[in-house]
Amino acid sequence: MKAIYSLFLVFALILLAMIGAGTLGMEYLFGVIIPYLAVLAFVVGFMLKVIGWGKSAVPFRITSTCGQAKSFPWIKENKLENPSSTWGVIGRMFFEVFLFRSLFRNTKVEIHDGQRIAYSSSKWLWLFAILFHYTFLVIVLRHMRFFTEPVPYPFVLLDRLDGMLQIGAPVLYISSLIILAALFYLLLRRLLIPSMRYISLPSDYFPLFLIIGVVITGILMRYFLKTDIMAIKELSMGLVTFRPVTPEGIGVIFFIHLFLVSVLLFYFPISKLMHMGGVFLSPTRNMTGNTRMVRHVNPWNYPVKVHTYDAYEDEFREKMVEAGLPVVKPLEEKSENAENKE
């Protein structure tokens, strides 16, 4: 049900763009105004969210330690999994952000023939997650040739590499295939594995369908419903140079594509997609694990009520003396000031 709602929502968005940009001819709205607003919402929303996180205090150093801590010189420290220095933290974050280290940890241990232990891995999630994220990045970068003139060499090169299979005309992008495969893997595991279905929310399906929508409209535009590339480039260059134009002859499919991307940008800052920013700020990963060595300061540390030794001795003095335990004040006197203190 949750998936179907989300799917319908994406269809509704497509329909909206078809009617708006196609039937009603509001090309300026869909080609210029909405994209501008979307980028604005994305940038401002993203920044506000990150600033919001940044404003929250980090009272304690709660690093998850996944390796041997810094100890004696004769014990080998795991500098990446339990960093004691800033460089270690940078290394740890690099592996986490760029290689999805924690997802990779998913090893499964099996016993074969009753004796031999084998460590197989169940890394499909890691594999498809990393494929998805990197191809997404490649696709975003590849699109830069629409926003630059002349197109800088790295983008040209990327474009060539992506199309190196040399199949069809225009040539097939490898990234188109990979991202579709990865997206469908991520979608299917949510739909088919009962536990995944149970934990999934509409807000898990919606971005998946939305991105699938973006990818499919993109592919349709490139391979099947040919659009006027030059006109599109004119539009996109107009956008980045702040001289927006809506040239004739751009198919409605382009406006659908652009509208879905705009929705994605609007949706990004208020959704789970913010994990892109949040991963850098996660206190269990981006801090050192050497809290006993370097003191961490809590900005809102406040005094608390404690039970003092004096109050304790007052209560038990008689028994302590009887048992031969040393006391500060002799039996007769009751210490002043023995109340619990702040």
């Binding site: 241990v109 197989s120 536990s195």
Partner: peptide
């Protein structure tokens, strides 16, 4: 429950 039934049926690993 269905969510864990599948895990018990198929989730690999003698130790996991």
């Amino acid at each position: 429950p269905e969510e864990s039934a599948q895990f018990f049926r198929g989730g690999p690993g003698q130790f996991a």
